[in-house]
Write a protein that binds this DNA or RNA. Structure first.
Lengths: 398, 398
DNA sequence: AAAACTTTGTTTAGCCACTAGACGAACATG
DNA sequence: CATGTTCGTCTAGTGGCTAAACAAAGTTTT
């Protein structure tokens, strides 16, 4: 039975419209909302009254008159509730508590190495516990938990495979839902990052954004026509395993010549070892040190980054030719080497991407530091909460 | 000003729902439509009456009783109007006249070589003229013209570039609209083919279909979440110029190691010349002859196809990893070599695509022969017509 | 300062499409 | 023929939207 259209759907849609308008243009008067959305003044008044009842918005003092009665300004009530976003990395766990606009209220981070699933889960529990405990009193409280994982998540939210964590077939969603009694969203780290970039990054107006999460491996999140594209089973964006060299070196995925064998952090570190920049047993074998080397003028390190940037460009060319996006954002750990990658990357793209693709195309690095994923899952949670709140609330009998 | 929701939108949506139900499940009674869509019986009756007035559906005799009053069966009125679909190829022009279900009523085809834009345009005019002339009398007549071109079409319908036709910046849409006074849709050949496959091909239930148009070049049409993804400016799907060999041979596009240098018809013919199968001046240097050679047991020809299939597989792996589609359909001229390509293609995919991508994944060749593009643009035209017809019709004053 | 005009937000009346349920028509069954 | 079932229409009622009137609260003009 397909979804039919009725009065409730209409109201839901318009309420959403009004709330969005207020969120994005606050402070704004009812009259302005009406004229800008095309809705009738009366309709807006009625919907606004609903939203006020739900404490999702509030009235501030009167605004400036423009030659008549002074308007009552409406504002989105950021603090009507809070969301939790967790980013599980291969060797870190990052948790944020955000308000309903995605502003970070609190950030908790910890690093680790080679922990088991159970150990990481406990760390996550304690992070969530303390974030919930520190959430201020609010009408709606903590509205949900979002978790980003470096692995493959199917449509039901089950983690099928997270190779770098050695996780397989884990139903983390149910675990969290049962423990906290809150809505839980589990999402691939790159998908979440893409959404984080769309909502809080540079291109909030863009409808088509490709987020390249370049870390130990490479994953890609696709925002197409304004929303996340997940594929038939939720496995889209495995572009790290796109072949860029036919019959190239073997990848652990079974394929050959995969992009991430050339452009990932792992690839960079491997070539650094090969070129003798580090001993393979070297304790300091990591990206920050390599960046330090480049900054101190080490020619060899600079050349390595240049090569990496070039390879990044190759894959991004493919992305551009495939999606014709408005924006490509490179995030995750490799983004910290922005200064050393961008020249060769841009050169590769400028020289080799189809000319007509290059109009209005922005290629850049994430400015959200390590946060896109955590912010992205928090944003999913918030969006989910708000969409539920747009629906008519059944009366509560006591 | 964003689009608001009101009862007109509701009616439009429900009318569409009812029409779709009738189209896909005919013959069907009002009662069945109501119970299957979830709409109220009265609502369905009223909407059906509208559709009857518009002659988009008709009543047939009473159906089988299931223990009560016999139902009046409703059917979609295929013949309420006709659409024209034109497929402009590099050396052919194919025109079809279809009914509103996409059934072909008439097909006109002509071949040519090295014609100018003006000459091809004239051929198109005469094709369209004769198709229109032969359309039977019907309530809505010819409802529009769709044209598929082997080139880049921007969102406004202007043809920016069709390299193999040597076309640039042509506003064919306006030309046709003015001449015929009908709605005109211009679409890239691969995009149209993708839609044709979705509507009339094997995977009509699939939401995510990738159509690989492998001819002289390679273009790709993307059906994502059930509708065509065109990118920010309409340039998506240029996967023929995806790099599969870093620092590989130069392509005329400016890039290196492009997929179509390995897996297109052109690539196949070029290697055939190189291997001495044809003299470079040979008149018979074309795909059908190469297929003939393979069929007559020529080992060298068979090996060439095998290699092509392998390279096709490389790109399709990338597609699968990117989109996690339900179906990949290979169409255009290379599809005629299906028997000689599929083995090595399937092997490449089976061995090297990520295992979890391979569940529920269908990779196959088009069964629509040369028609997907023409059928696709006709389908666009029909869909456009029907969506306009769902809107309330203003009274006509005389 | 009074009058006139503007702008804001609420209220009222009316409209439209949907729903629920009554109802008659048309058929099957015993 | 009586009864039960299914189909399709019809009627009353509901909910949300629109247009327009209106009250409230300003500014501008005289």
């Amino acid at each position: 039975m397909t979804k039919t259209w009725n009065h409730q759907v209409v109201k839901e849609g318009n309420k959403s419209l009004v709330l969005d308008k207020i969120k994005n243009n606050s402070p704004i008067s009812r009259a302005a909302v009406a004229s800008q959305t095309g809705l009738n003044k009366g309709t807006v008044s009625s919907l606004v009254s609903d939203l006020l009842d739900d404490q999702l918005i509030y009235e501030s003092g009167p605004g400036e008159s423009s030659g008549g009665r002074r308007p009552v300004m409406l504002l989105f009530n950021d603090l009507a509730g809070y969301a939790i976003g967790i980013d599980i990395g291969v060797n870190y766990l990052l948790g944020v508590l955000t308000d309903l606009s995605g502003n970070i209220q609190l950030k908790k981070e910890c690093s680790f190495k080679n922990l088991s699933y159970e150990e990481i889960r406990e760390k996550m529990f304690s992070t969530i516990d303390s974030l919930i405990a520190s959430a201020p009193e609010s009408p709606h409280g903590v509205v949900g938990i979002g978790v980003g994982v470096p692995g493959v998540v199917d449509k039901s939210g089950e983690i099928l495979l997270a190779p770098n964590l050695k996780w397989r077939n884990l139903d983390l969603k149910s675990v969290l839902e049962e423990k906290y009694g809150l809505p839980v969203i589990i999402e691939n780290e790159a998908n979440a990052g893409a959404y984080g970039e769309k909502r809080f990054g540079a291109g909030q107006e863009c409808e088509n954004i490709i987020y390249v999460s370049a870390g130990i491996g490479i994953g890609v999140g696709l925002i197409l026509n304004g929303s996340l594209y997940k594929g038939s089973n939720g496995f889209s964006g495995e572009l790290g395993h796109m072949t860029i060299q036919v019959n190239g070196p073997k990848c652990r995925c079974g394929n050959e010549g995969c992009w991430e064998l050339y452009a990932s952090e792992q690839a960079l570190l491997d070539t650094a070892v090969q070129s003798g920049l580090f001993a393979s047993t070297d304790e300091e074998l990591d990206l920050p040190h390599l960046i330090q080397l480049a900054e101190s003028g080490n020619e060899e390190a600079i050349a390595l980054f240049k090569k990496s940037g070039d390879y990044l460009g190759v894959g991004i060319n493919n992305i551009v030719n495939t999606f014709n996006p408005q924006q490509v954002v490179i995030g995750n750990r490799m983004a910290s080497a922005k200064n050393w990658l961008s020249e060769s990357l841009n050169e590769r793209v400028a020289n080799q991407a189809l000319w007509f693709q290059q109009n209005d195309l922005i290629i850049g690095f994430s400015e959200l530091d390590t946060l896109p994923t955590a912010l992205g899952v928090a944003a999913f949670t918030i969006e989910n909460f708000l969409s539920v709140r747009m629906q008519p609330q059944q009366a509560i009998f006591s």
